[in-house]
């Protein structure tokens, strides 16, 4: 495949098959934001330091700024836009709102995706497990405490619902 050619890349994005035409030099983050119009994932450092671009690829937290979009052809991608259910916020989103876990909000989509993947595999994470799971997501505003509170609150809410 040569450098300038636009090639099709099909991904299952938040449950829908989406195809975009991109050059090989396109990151997953760029494909999501600028080709598919999903601007929830944030372009922070664009080099792996901040986690604002975190999405799930086949369920695994991944930095979309360092992922080549073509490497995701045929794979499932979940972004922050995929968390709410028909306009009803996910308990994590609700909890971030209630605890003040989002201030400027720039880190929030990435935080939510790392936290979402944690709660998928661990219904009752300890505070340490939460901070470890979020250790690749930087926040310049909150001091993290309210974010950890939010994840604990959401975990409790989800456990309650599962009863």
């Amino acid at each position: 495949m040569d450098a300038a050619a636009l090639v099709p890349c099909t991904m299952q994005v938040n449950g829908d098959a989406r195809t975009c035409a991109i050059t090989p030099a396109t990151t997953l983050l760029e494909a999501l934001r600028y080709t598919l119009g999903l601007t929830g994932s944030k372009q922070g450092c664009d080099k792996g330091d901040c986690g604002a671009c975190t999405v799930l690829v086949d369920g695994v937290p991944t930095l979309s700024c360092l992922t080549l979009a073509l490497a995701c052809d045929g794979r499932a991608v979940t972004t922050v836009e995929g968390l709410a259910d028909k306009g009803v916020p996910h308990p994590l989103q609700d909890a971030f709102d209630r605890t003040g876990g989002a201030q400027c909000g720039f880190c929030t989509p990435g935080m939510l995706m790392s936290a979402y993947a944690l709660l998928q595999r661990e219904a009752a994470p300890t505070r340490d497990e939460i901070s470890h799971a979020l250790s690749g997501n930087l926040c310049r505003c909150t001091g993290y405490t309210k974010i950890l509170d939010a994840v604990e609150l959401a975990a409790a809410e989800l456990r309650e619902r599962a009863k």
């Binding site: 975190t54 937290p61 991944t62 930095l63 790392s114 250790s135 690749g136 997501n137």
Partner: peptide, 9 residues
């Protein structure tokens, strides 16, 4: 190494 996301990749 780095962070959870980077270790996943």
């Amino acid at each position: 190494v780095a962070s959870p996301q980077i270790r996943n990749m």
